[in-house]
Amino acid sequence: MNIIVCIKRVPETTDADISIDKSGKDIDKSSLVFDLNEWDSYAIEEAILLKEKLGGTVTVISMGGEESNESLRKCLAMGADDAIRLTDPAFNGSDGFATARVLAEAVRKIPYDLILTGTQAEDDGYGQVGVVLAELLGIPHAAVVNRIEVQDKRLKVHRELEGGLEEVVEIDLPALLTIQTGINEPRYVSIMGIRKVAKKEIKSFGAPELNLKADEVGLSGSDIRLEKVFLPPVGEAAEILEGKPEEIALKVSEILRDKGGLS
């Protein structure tokens, strides 16, 4: 089974104190740590698990600048065989659709049975690229997948629905699946592991190699445009309990008594 995994390098913002940058169109990323998109870490792990079981190759592709090598190397260290970076100034500002178009041209050059992407990215959260990619390639897809069973020339996959419900579908190969978090336990990558793949070649393609015209990609190839970003309006903000830990604890016990019926 030859598998392609599309990944993205994103800033870690969960625990970060973030602020809006001068352009007003993004956050200030200068002090942020970047890592492989969380959903993608499950997608690459799933690809490697399938390879370990069935043989074949795993090729990892990312659209982004040279800094994306960091995430591509992490995937190589996890067990991917090849890495491809799609870099061109013309790709800047691509929305979900334009990103899928770039990825589609790169994927067409490689033989594959299965394509995996994360269900969405932590940063822009489109949840769109994988499914559009499948449409552009003319292959079947299933989104929000949290279990895969391989059955000869087809897959049985579980899609995560709401409220704990799952939907089981059968899908013919070649196919594209967007992977949900929790499907596996992504393996730990040591610094030694990264070092081992430090010299491995990462191929790089730009718009000309992919036969893409400048107006098909980037901002001019996009359907939507971000105008400005702003902090979400604060709702009925919480009453912040202040004081020494002891005083806060007393307050919590009073709330539990009054509102929770704790005796």
């Binding site: 979900g96 489109y126 359907d223 971000l226 702003f230 979400p232």
Partner: peptide
């Protein structure tokens, strides 16, 4: 297509939407 909109308004002959970025830490008008 604009996905995962938390706001949407019609402005003349076009539409503008509000989406969230970075896990809901930032809103964007698109």
């Amino acid at each position: 297509l604009a996905t995962d909109c938390i706001g949407i308004e019609i402005e003349g002959e076009t539409c503008s939407v509000i989406r969230q970025l970075y896990g809901g830490k930032i809103n964007a008008s698109v």
